[in-house]
Design a protein around this nucleic acid. Structure first.
Lengths: 117, 117
DNA sequence: CGCATATTCAACCTAATGGTTGACGATTGC
DNA sequence: GCAATCGTCAACCATTAGGTTGAATATGCG
């Protein structure tokens, strides 16, 4: 795994890590708090956070014994630009995104309505 | 790996598969022709194509003994929508996107994500 | 028909991934 | 000072991913 895109895309390929990113979208969080809603060990979450950090998707700032995690949206830029290269698709907006998030949090819902005429 | 995004992102996480997508962006290709520039077996490429197909990123149409591979840009939409969700917080995406559009690979006038302030 | 071509299948190998547990080093607060 | 808390490290385990090779299955052509 040499390429930057490899690292970013494979970081994004894990649902736990995407959930973490969604959480951090709301606010910065300590590692323990990030781990709290998940049904896996703290060590596992710590590993996920390391992967997200190496992908540049988050940054971690240790203050005292607490390590604060902060989202770094810039890192998605390369991947986003790459994908736009295929971009014969329709505009996306915040409504779509929110609907999409609900879809992923509630698995039975389909990912997206088809808005390609 | 159940989620749709899991499949798309992990399909995109491999450099060989991204190369294949770039090639197919130019034109539809037979499996053998896709494999030609790579230094790996045809079987390996065949597997990559299966993964891309399952991710919905390409489609394969068998005519005679030749299986034609065709890019399916729509499948990137979900992932793109997801990523744009992070872009809402920083305008940097738009600048880069526009710069990218002025570059060589640019498809014509794709609409920008709606910021909606 | 018989052979070459196109693609996949099956078995196998190695390395990476995602998880566990328990011990450990820092830091904080009583 | 000492115990609790925060987070990582190390060792381990099971599964998946990406590759190989060789055989198998279609299909096209002379």
């Amino acid at each position: 795994m040499d390429n930057r895109l490899d690292i970013v895309f494979s970081a994004l390929a894990d649902p736990t890590r995407r959930s973490i990113l969604r959480m951090l979208l709301e606010d910065d969080m300590a590692v323990t708090d990030v781990a709290e809603p998940f049904e896996m060990s703290l060590a596992a979450i710590s590993k996920h956070l390391t992967i997200l950090t190496r992908a540049g998707l988050i940054s971690q700032d240790k203050r005292g014994r607490v390590k604060w995690c902060k989202i770094e949206p810039d890192a998605l830029r390369d991947a986003s630009v790459w994908m736009q290269g295929f971009g014969q698709f329709e505009p996306v907006n915040l409504d779509d995104f929110e609907r999409f998030l609900e879809g992923e949090l509630a698995p039975p819902a389909p990912p997206l309505p088809d808005h390609r005429s």
